[in-house]
Amino acid sequence: MMRLPSYRYRAPKTVQDAAAWLAESPGDTMLLAGGTDLIPNMKRRQQVPSTVVGLRGITELSRTDDRDGLEIGAGVTLTSLVHDERVHARYLGLWQAVGQIATPLLRNMGTIGGNICLDTRCTYYDQSFEWRQAINFCMKKDGDTCWVATSSDKCLAVSSTDAAPALIALGATVRLVSATGTREVALTDLYANDGMHYLTRRSDEILTTVTLPKADGWRTTYWKLRRRGSFDFPVAAVAAAARFDGDRIVEARIVLGAVASRPLEVPAAAARLAGQPLTDDLIASVADDAYTLAKPMDNTDFELVWRKKTVRSLVTSALRELRGDDMRAARTKLARHPLLVIS
């Protein structure tokens, strides 16, 4: 059996207490939410914190509040979001993203906060200690070389969170709390395009809340590519959000997932869409913008050249769905099920 390394466990009841524990030794303390990312990583010795601060006991983190928009506690499980009628009704893209994360069992455990902070992934890195020893490790952990691109001076591990692209497309912000204070940042600013330092979160900060602005007039959608209908992380994904005035787009955001070390916004696409009706030609140009920007590397399932090509098709499907085309058959084929998760 794979076993955990030894660690010290702390169970704070409040965010303040958690922040205090974290402040003690932020370098080798990690937060534990659902554990579906951290526990496997610890078993594989990719992350070996000496102290683990469990967030489970902090009830305030698992609240969802209807304010101006929706304020979701970092500890809310993915299953609760999928079963949350408000998410389904107002933030369909987020619902589609969350409903396709991992598996139903993992969604019962995994939290939205953990998903946002999910470690970047790479097939040279998500391996046991012994396996990594056999390649003499890599830059992200215990080694020097990036085997994905041996001349690269930075790690190119892949941002694999499904929720983040959807949240960014929806204009989400997050609250970060530390022993020294609280700050609110746009979610997009939480990320950096660097496989090792993929979060701008300071190691003494706790992500407490994700806030979604009011959804008035916005339509959103999420298209995910993965080998199987379940379990698999995205290998390419797109979240698209647009505010319409009649059939004309007023404002739009396109965010790609799993093709860089961070969720990748496509500003050119947003600019191109603003003020336009969604014609087939426009969709094709936007798909091109996204295709050009996407930089998948050879460190996930599937071949990178093909993954890059699929970005066009994903963006096309997403925009067509926003336009109102009936995309159910295409979605069922891609997702391998009709996304029935709500019950």
Binding site: M2, L4, G34, I39, P40, K43, R44, T79, A102, M109
Partner: peptide
């Protein structure tokens, strides 16, 4: 033991979860 197969599922407070990932 990594959350990838489902064989270890149990009900924890009535929710089905993967016992290999619960500390």
């Amino acid at each position: 033991e990594l959350g990838e197969c489902g064989a270890c599922a149990v009900l924890l407070d009535d929710q089905p979860v993967l016992s290999c990932l619960v500390v």
